[in-house]
């Protein structure tokens, strides 16, 4: 069993995805390694979400290769990832019930489970809400619970699909703060967003996706100051003043 072995670095080569006969990802190649936050940036319909889902095993590619620290995708790779969706997708049970639900398939010992639950509740300031019905919380609180549900799995790679798209600015800042701390503690974040300002705030590296192709893959400092393609330049120029 390769369980417990790191899944990064990830090397993706010539990944092709078709949905309903339409090519959504076209010869995508990229590398994700080390620590930090990689932002997948691009306009709506660029294929960002599909890329994330393909890396998570939710979408099957028609061609191409994914090597996770040299291995193909499998249950052991999935178990070292977690995905936060755009909507919280909480179940009709308490906050802590939602966290337990995520942990149960991992089959952890009781002590370990309790340790993780206590740690995550404290870190996300959710203790007071632990026994509240999750679906009764505000949008921001729900997304905080969804993030906690992903991180209680202690993933090596955290995938985030526009996690703040339906939140107000205050709630967005809370989530971004938590993400920054998560990245600092060693989890690699792969964040999909079309919000250039958010990308600026969080990214260490940027993958610029456009029309199903990777047009740029560069450190944030390089990408935001000197975009190499016209498409990226237009995308950054269209950014609303922050």
């Amino acid at each position: 069993m390769a369980l417990g072995q790191p899944i990064l670095p990830l090397e993706v080569r010539d990944l092709m995805v078709e949905i309903g006969g339409r090519r959504v990802l076209d010869r995508v190649s990229l590398t994700i390694a080390g620590q930090g936050t990689t932002v997948v940036l691009g306009p709506n319909g660029a294929g960002k979400s599909v890329l994330l889902r393909t890396l998570h095993g939710l979408v099957k590619p028609v061609a191409g290769e994914m090597r996770w620290n040299g291995r193909p995708f499998g249950p052991d790779v999935l178990s070292r990832q977690a995905l936060v969706f755009q909507r919280p997708l909480l179940l009709r049970r308490s906050v802590v019930g939602n966290l337990v639900f995520a942990l149960r398939p991992r089959g952890l010992a009781r002590g370990e489970r309790q340790r993780r639950l206590a740690a995550i509740l404290a870190r996300f300031a959710l203790e007071a809400l632990a026994d509240r019905p999750a679906r009764g919380l505000s949008g921001g609180e729900q997304q905080r619970v969804a993030l906690a549900r992903a991180l209680v799995l202690e993933p090596e790679l955290l995938l985030l699909d526009e996690p703040t798209a339906s939140l107000d600015p205050a709630a967005t800042l809370v989530i971004e703060d938590l993400l920054r701390r998560t990245a600092a503690e060693g989890t690699h974040l792969l964040l999909v967003t079309h919000d250039v300002a958010q990308a600026r705030r969080l990214a260490d590296r940027v993958i610029f996706l456009h029309g199903g192709r990777v047009l740029e893959e560069a450190p944030a400092s390089v990408f935001f100051t000197r975009p190499a393609t016209r498409e990226a330049f237009l995308c950054l120029a269209g950014e609303l003043p922050t």
Binding site: R53, H56, G57, L58, P75, L78, S79, A82, L83, F85, L89, L91, F101, A102, R104, P105
Partner: peptide
């Protein structure tokens, strides 16, 4: 919830119960 269940690696029996 389908994608959430697959993301968490739920087995079919657990999906039905949930």
């Amino acid at each position: 919830y389908d994608e959430l269940f697959r993301s968490l690696g739920l087995r079919p029996a657990a999906v039905l119960a949930t």
